[in-house]
Every structure is written in structure tokens, then in C-alpha cells.
Simulated scan of single mutants.
Amino acid sequence: MKNIKLILGVFLLSSLVTLAQKSQNNKKTYAEISVKEGGKWEGRKYIGGTFKNVQKLKLAPEHTDHSFDIRYEGPGWESNKIGYRLYLDWRNAIDIFGKKTDAIVLPQVGQDGFDSYHEMSDWGSDILKAGKGIGIGSIDRYLNNERLHFYEVDSTLAKVENKSKSSAVKINYYGWKTAGEKIDFTSQLTIASDQRHTQHTIKASKAISGICTGIVKQKNTEVFKKVSQNKRWAYLATYGKQSLVPDQLGMAIFYEVSTIESEVNAEFDHLLVFKPSNQTVSFYFLGVWEQEKDGIKNKEAFIKYLDEKLIELNKKGKI
């Protein structure tokens, strides 16, 4: 009898593990943040150690760009269509991982070298050069013809959440100081199954001018703009041979017209400057890469896709 119970127990455990593996394999979204443990700080560089995924992270005071303590420099999130990452430092830019597969890939990105993801692999690669720009859909502050970065922040807390049909990254910036003004700021980035777009929900503790988002300027691109039939929603988009490959990449931001104070053709970016507010504001951003599995491969298909999303926003107020 004991042997039968043992066999049944082993079988049950094996079945549960198999079901868990199948569930993970069937997931279409994922978010993570991976930090090094077991090493040490030498100045502003983290030496040694191995990566471990965590659910939340308080940014080390030593951390800056290229500190080597966070795998691919910040949190990442993906759907079965595309992936994104946020530089969790003064740059605060969002980058794009182009995917040639519909499988979850982020757990393997950057494991074999700090910036190995810049080289094309079976799953894809980093395809956007943010450079001195804002990347796609991230947050900054624009005053007096200058983008003010996240140089001075008292503390930064990042969390990730994975649900059955969506994944999210939430960042809390406490004491973000720019131009003599200090605020707390929250940023939540959510991606859903079978979608390319990320919903970006932001909130400032104080209504200040200049909070902005945008799309980094690249060569060989066209800019497209359109407003929905009900005049509530609009998009700003770019398309062209602007990926790092280089090949065709489209980027777009969908926003509520009433939340925007101005559009700015800045030196490095196409910017959307929000009206001062301490209320929650949501917008959407997305990338479309020609090498994506069953992807959009030309300008005409890209515009058609954007227009369909705009019609959806016009009807439902969300996508």
C-alpha cells in the first residue's frame, strides 16, 4: 500500500510539473527584471556575480548606465509579437527587441554577454538605436528646448507582474528633480497576448509643465499623423529603413488629443508634450518589424494597421 501511495504521489507531482511547464510554454506575455548577486561594486561598476530574476528591485545608489548589475540594463517585457526594455537609469529610454519567433525569449537575452543581444540570433535582436533620443514611448521632461533626464532621483523602485494574458512593469520614481521642481512619478507598462502595443499609464504627484513622450528620430523615415473620427484619439508614427539591421521598422504612439499640450520637432526626437496634470494618463506605443513572424513588411500595411487601431480607439476608447 505504501508503495502504491508513493507511486501515485510521484505520478501526481510529475503531472503537476508537466502542466506547469505546458502553462509556461503556452504563455504569450512575459516581464522580468534580472540583477546580479554575489559580486561587488567598484565605483559605479558591478564586478562579478551571477544574474537572478526578482519580482521587485530598489535601484542601487551606485547604478548608472553600463553598470553591469542589471541584465540588458533594466526591466523587459514582451508578447508573442515583440519585446521592449527600459534603460533603468538617467536615460530612461525604451528600446525594442525585434522577435523572429512567437516564443518567449527574454529569459535568454543577455545571458551570454552584456550586449550580445545586439548581434542577430535565432530569436531576433535589439533593433532600435535610441542614442541621445527618447527611444519609443518613454518619459522625460522638455523645457526650454532641452530634454531633462532622470539624473536626480531620490530612489527608484521597479516591479514586474505576470498574469495569464498580460504582463506589466511598474516603476516608481521618488523625488525626481528637474529645473528646481521635485515630484514623485509612476509609470506602468502593460502588454497583452497577441498584441504589439504597450499601454503606458503615467501619473505625476504634482502638475508640472513639460512631461513628454515621443519617438526617436532616425534617418530614412517618413512621419505619419492622423486623428480619429471623433477627434479624441490620434497617432504619431514613423516608418522606414530605421532598424539597426538595417531594415523596415515602424513605430507609433496613440494618444488622447485632450492630454497633449504641444508637438515638438526636437533635435533627436518627435515629441508629444503633455498638459500639466496630477491625474492618471494612458497612451499606447508600438513597434512593427518586418522580420517578425507573419509580420507587417511594408509602409502600406503599416498604415492600414495603424488606421485599424485608430478606428478601434474611436469606438471603444481602448485597444
Rank of each mutant, 00 (worst) to 15 (best):
A179G: 09
I303F: 02
H270S: 11
H118N: 14
Q279T: 11
N314C: 11
T156A: 04
S205P: 05
Y84R: 03
N144S: 14
D89N: 14
K165G: 10
V281A: 03
D122P: 05
Q188T: 15
E37W: 08
M251K: 10
K170P: 00
L19Q: 13
Y284E: 09
W233S: 04
K99Y: 04
A130G: 07
K52M: 05
K315I: 14
K58Y: 11
Y30Q: 01
A60Q: 11
G76H: 02
S167C: 08
Y72C: 14
N25G: 12
D115N: 15
R141L: 13
Y173Q: 01
F268E: 12
A179F: 11
T190D: 02
M1C: 13
A192K: 15
E146H: 12
E62T: 11
T198Y: 06
F254P: 02
T221N: 08
T178P: 02
N220L: 12
F185A: 00
G175R: 02
S187W: 06
D69V: 05
E181R: 11
S243V: 03
S15I: 15
I260Q: 04
D154N: 14
H200M: 11
I33F: 01
V109P: 00
F150Q: 03
P276Q: 06
D95R: 03
N144V: 11
P246C: 09
P107R: 06
G175E: 02
N80I: 05
G135Q: 03
I47D: 04
T101L: 06
V288K: 01
F268Y: 15
A168C: 10
S23W: 13
S205M: 05
F51E: 00
M1Y: 13
M1K: 13
H197Y: 14
S121M: 13
G49V: 07
G43M: 08
S228V: 05
P246S: 15
N80S: 10
Q108V: 15
S116H: 09
L128N: 00
I202T: 00
T221D: 07
G113L: 06
W233L: 05
E73M: 13
D65N: 15
T259W: 04
L148E: 06
G295R: 02
Y87K: 10
D184A: 07
Y235M: 04
V281W: 02
N162K: 07
S277P: 05
H270E: 12
A207Y: 03
Q218Y: 12
D65L: 12
K304G: 11
L19K: 12
H63D: 09
K165I: 11
G180D: 05
D122V: 14
F283A: 02
K177D: 04
S121I: 10
E290T: 13
R147F: 05
Q188D: 07
K206D: 12
K52A: 07
D154H: 10
Y174R: 13
G43L: 08
K226S: 10
E256G: 10
L189C: 08
K299Y: 02
L271W: 00
L310Q: 00
A179R: 08
E78V: 03
G124N: 03
W90T: 08
D154I: 10
E37L: 08
N230G: 09
T280W: 05
N314L: 06
